[in-house]
Design a protein around this nucleic acid. Structure first.
Lengths: 211, 211
DNA sequence: CGGCTGGGTGATTCCCGTTTAGTGTCGGAC
DNA sequence: GTCCGACACTAAACGGGAATCACCCAGCCG
C-alpha cells in the first residue's frame, strides 16, 4: 500500500538508477531534433523536453550543447570512415577507388545535410579546440584513407599536375564545394545533382589523372 | 540654473540634424567589427558602442541586424560583380576568361572570409526571403557573367561532358569548395593555397574543356 | 538510524536581438 | 516670443537562448 501512495510523486520523475541510460536517451532525442531542425533549432530545452527531463539535467551528462552535437557528428563521421574503409578493401584500381569514395562522400553529405554542415561548413570558432579535436582527428583519418589511392596513382606517375597531397585536397574540396552549395543553397535552380556529381568527378579525374 | 543642470545631459548626445550621416557611420563601424569578428561577434550592442550611440538607435536606420550585415555583403558582392564585368570586357579567349574570373573569385573569398561565409556558406534560413532576395539576385548576376564564357566554350563544341550550365556550376562549386574549406578549416595543414588554386583550375579546365 | 552520494530540479545569471514608451531639442508657424 | 510637431535618440524591458547555482530527495552503506 505504501507503494501506491508513493506513486504519484514518483511518476513525475524518471525511474532511479538508470543514469547511464539517460545519456543514450539524450543523444537519441538530440539527434532527431538536430537532423530535423539543424544546429540552432536543436535547443537544450527542446532536447530536454523530448527526453522528459529538465534542461539542467543535460549538463549531468554533457559539458555543453556543442558536446552533444559533436558526439552525434562523431558517430556520423565514424560511419563515413567505415564507408571509406570498406571501399579501400575492394579489389579495384586506384582511380575507381577514388571515384567510389568521393561518390560515397557526396551521398553521405546529401543524406546528412545538417551533420555535414556542422562538421564541414562551420568554422568551429565558438567551440573550444579540445572538443573538436577528436572529430577533427576522425575527419583526418577519413582524408588519409581517401589519400591512399591518390598516392598510388601518383606512384604510377599518372598525376598530371601537382603533388599527391595537393591532388587529394583538390579532389576532396571540389566535391565538398558541390555538395555544400547544394545543401546550403537548395533554392537556387541547380541542375540535377546526380549529373553534377558525375560532371565534377569526370572533370576532376580526367583533369588530374592520365590514363 | 536650470541651464547648468541641462548641460551635462546635452554633451552626452550626438549633434543634431545629421541623421542621414548616422547610417553611414553605422555601416562603417559594423563592417569593421564584422570583418574582425564575424557574424556572431558583430553584436548590435558592440556596433552601437563603436558608433557612440545606444543599441536601439540602430533600429532607426536598419530593420534588424541581418539588414546591416546584408547591406555590407551587398556592397562586397557588387565589387565582385564589378570584377567579373571588367574581366568580361577583356579581349582574351573564353577559357582564359573563365580562369581569370575564377581566380578573382577565389582571391575575393580569401580576402573577405567573413563576408564570403555569410553569403556563400550559410543557409540563410533564419533570414526572411525578401531580405536575401537582392543579394541573391546579385549573386546570380555574378554567376551569369561567369557563365557567358562557359557558354561560348560550349558553342565551340569544346565541352568534354555535360551541358554548359552544368559545367559552369561544377567550375564554380569546385572553386567554392576549395576556398570555403581554406576559410572554415584554417587550422588543418593545407598545402600552399596558391598552388591548390592552380591545381584546381588546371584540373577542372583540362578535365572539362578540350583544346 | 544517520550521513553520503548520484540524479535531478527551479531559480538565477548573463547575453542576445528586438520592442515599447518615452525624452530632449530643433525648425518653423503663429 | 511662444508653442508645436517631428526627429534623433534613449532607458527599460521582454522573451529566449546557454549555462550555473543552491538545493532536494531517494537509496544505500556502515
Amino acid at each position: 500500500m505504501t507503494v501506491v501512495l508513493k506513486k504519484p510523486h514518483k511518476s513525475a520523475r524518471k525511474p532511479k538508477g538508470d543514469g547511464h541510460l539517460r545519456r543514450g536517451e539524450i543523444l537519441a532525442a538530440a539527434e532527431k531534433i538536430f537532423i530535423a531542425e539543424g544546429y540552432a533549432g536543436a535547443t537544450i530545452r527542446k532536447i530536454a523536453d523530448a527526453v522528459g527531463v529538465s534542461s539542467t539535467a543535460l549538463y549531468m551528462h554533457f559539458r555543453d550543447k556543442d558536446q552533444i552535437l559533436l558526439e552525434i557528428s562523431n558517430d556520423a563521421i565514424e560511419r563515413l570512415l567505415e564507408l571509406n574503409t570498406q571501399i579501400a578493401a575492394q579489389p579495384i584500381d586506384p582511380v575507381s577507388r577514388v571515384r567510389v569514395m568521393l561518390e560515397a562522400y557526396m551521398k553521405f553529405a546529401l543524406d546528412n545535410p545538417n551533420t555535414y554542415q556542422l562538421v564541414f561548413c562551420s568554422t568551429g570558432d565558438h567551440i573550444s579546440a579540445d572538443k573538436t579535436a577528436d572529430v577533427l582527428a576522425l575527419g583526418d583519418r577519413c582524408f588519409e584513407k581517401f589519400s591512399e589511392p591518390v598516392h598510388q596513382i601518383a606512384a604510377q606517375g599518372r598525376l598530371r599536375s601537382g603533388s599527391a597531397v595537393q591532388a587529394a585536397e583538390v579532389l576532396w574540396s571540389g566535391c565538398h564545394g558541390l555538395v555544400s552549395l547544394l545543401i546550403t543553397k537548395p533554392s537556387r535552380g541547380w541542375s540535377d545533382p546526380d549529373q553534377l556529381m558525375k560532371v565534377m568527378l569526370d572533370g576532376l579525374l580526367h583533369g588530374l589523372v592520365t590514363d
